[in-house]
Design a protein around this nucleic acid. Structure first.
Lengths: 332, 332
DNA sequence: ATGAATGCGTCAGAAAGTGACGCAATAATG
DNA sequence: CATTATTGCGTCACTTTCTGACGCATTCAT
């Protein structure tokens, strides 16, 4: 039999709500793919038959345009198992403060599926799973800035399709939005919960940064993107444009931690850790590690406040000494 | 026609590789659900027919046990769109340093699907999407500790099914693993990249914490879990057991930031922010906000080093003054 | 050894799927 | 405005598939 397979292919061809496909398009694509003959009439009948699935058609002129229903829930095959569902729940906990809502909404249907699996319309109860997982954050919880509806979609699509963008952008300093008629999107950079679009303007070749949440409107143009000669996002970042230089040199770090503060050092492997030596008498822990000499390292170390003493390298110790001096004078 | 629908249900009933289902089980479940009569013979024939899908059977005695093929890729319906695929890619970037590999592997098939969508076996090329998204981390990159294979699965399942666990646990201080014959799993807590299982031992009622990566082996028992009277994970955390007390009181924070350090404050909304006042002359920015008085807040503020001066509340200022004094004496 | 499951081959009637054709409605075209 | 191409849909006859029933062989539990 071929009917089942053909209908399966048809289901795969039907796009999500927002896009649509016509019967004749389906017929074309089907013949391109495996399926053999399939008269247009048959496909019409198939679609009728498939109405057990949440698909809808919209009469546009004399032609039906098919898509999945707006509120259609997603199917997974094989069906999502409880462990995966739990993992999606964890992921959501992790990501909600990290990714802007407009990005996260693409995963919404996966979270919904997970929730319904966990709520167990299945055999087992899985009672109160919501109260079984919690996340504790080490850092301060920020609210991811909200991105105007529609903007993320357009920017993502333009980036993927390598098309230019027209963007209305509200710089921080000014209240009014500025129109950029032609941006060449080059890449996305996530910094914390901020999403930057790296792009060049028109014919210029120097990449600039645009924050997605500062875009009031974005439209994709037909014009293909022009990528500056030799541009690479990785290199662009490494050149320090985001003022988050990750050092390239590693240093031999030696630092003395309070016993309390060091408690979690034992559990979380610092990449390049050499040794952690407990000094029972002094209630201190000596850390030795080969780590990247980065800004991130300084944030991390400073976060410990007076619970850490940087011993080596000497330059870093000097930095901290200087900082200590400054702090003292600030709070005098 | 009913055949298509029945076969669809059968596909849904077939579990992922690892579990399996027999023909008679399928027949039972089918009659429970919508589908009407369906003779066993028909289902056998259906399964044969469905062999276009990556399902396999294993002859166990005289009975076939069906499951999806081990390497079967997942199907999504509707098919994952490029934006969602890109989002999954972002998510992976975010999560790889955060979640242990054994949790993340449940999402592997979703990442694979996303990658194949992005690589475009479709019409459009979506060239070099891998070089179009990068993440820059604010904090120091830690390596999530690796959890023994099989442990996470068992713990997740026991937690979901509310069953007891037998665990072989390697405490930090000792080299040898200790056997816990009966743990009552109560909840999971994520702290950074660490995963804690909160559980009670046997008949005891005081919850303890077990790190998943310290478990060498875990087995699910048949015995149902005993939850201590009135236990709630949320309350347990709030009682400060993880030494990450999130304050319950809010304070009116006033702090003076260096202009440079404050740059990103303008973009990331601190919850409860009142005002950010630039002082052009002094090159400082005054922050006023109503925030939770938490440990996280202190980490965050200390991370700025000498680029911030805490002004109010006075108690907090005193803390920082004290810290400054201590630091000064440390580095003298 | 016996009986209950299970898989599978076969058969015939029932059900469905299919292409072809024709008609109506509609948008595009000249 | 008339014409044409496209699309949807009803119908029909024919083909293919589906399905339950039956029977037989095999295997595991008792």
């Amino acid at each position: 039999m071929d009917t089942l397979y053909r209908r399966w292919l048809i289901l795969c061809l039907i796009p999500r709500y927002g896009n649509s496909i016509t019967v004749s398009q389906i017929a074309d694509r089907l013949s391109t793919r495996g399926a053999e003959r399939a008269s247009v009439r048959t496909i019409q009948r198939d679609l009728e038959e498939l109405s057990t699935f949440p698909i809808t058609s919209e009469l546009n002129g004399r032609t039906f345009h098919w898509s999945w229903a707006e509120n259609a829930r997603r199917f997974d095959l094989p069906v999502m198992d409880p462990q995966t569902a739990l993992t999606f729940h964890l992921v959501r906990e992790h990501l909600t403060p990290l990714l802007p809502a407009s990005s996260l909404k693409y995963l919404e249907s996966y979270f919904t599926t997970a929730a319904s699996i966990l709520s167990g319309n299945n055999e087992m109860p899985l009672a109160q799973w919501r109260d079984k997982v919690r996340k504790i954050s080490r850092g301060l919880q920020m609210e991811p800035p909200s991105i105007s509806p529609g903007v993320a979609e357009v920017v993502y699509e333009a980036l993927l399709r390598e098309r230019c963008l027209r963007v209305s952008y509200r710089p921080r300093s000014e209240g009014t939005a500025k129109e950029y008629k032609e941006l060449n999107p080059l890449g996305l950079v996530l910094v914390g919960s901020l999403v930057y679009l790296v792009a060049t303007i028109g014919e210029y070749t120097n990449p600039l940064q645009f924050l997605l949440h500062r875009m009031e409107e974005a439209t994709m143009l037909d014009k293909p993107v022009t990528v500056p000669e030799g541009f690479s996002l990785q290199r662009y970042i490494e050149s320090g444009e985001f003022s988050y230089p990750v050092g390239k040199e590693t240093i031999r770090l030696k630092a003395l931690f309070d016993k309390d503060a060091a408690a979690y050092l034992h559990e979380t492997p610092l990449p390049g850790l050499f040794s952690l030596t407990d000094d029972e008498k002094e209630e201190t822990v000596l850390l030795e590690a080969e780590v990247l000499d980065s800004l991130q390292l300084r944030w991390w170390l400073r976060g410990f406040g007076d619970s850490v003493e940087v011993l080596e390298p000497l330059e870093l110790r000097e930095e901290f000494k200087e900082m200590a001096k400054n702090l003292k004078s600030i709070y005098r």
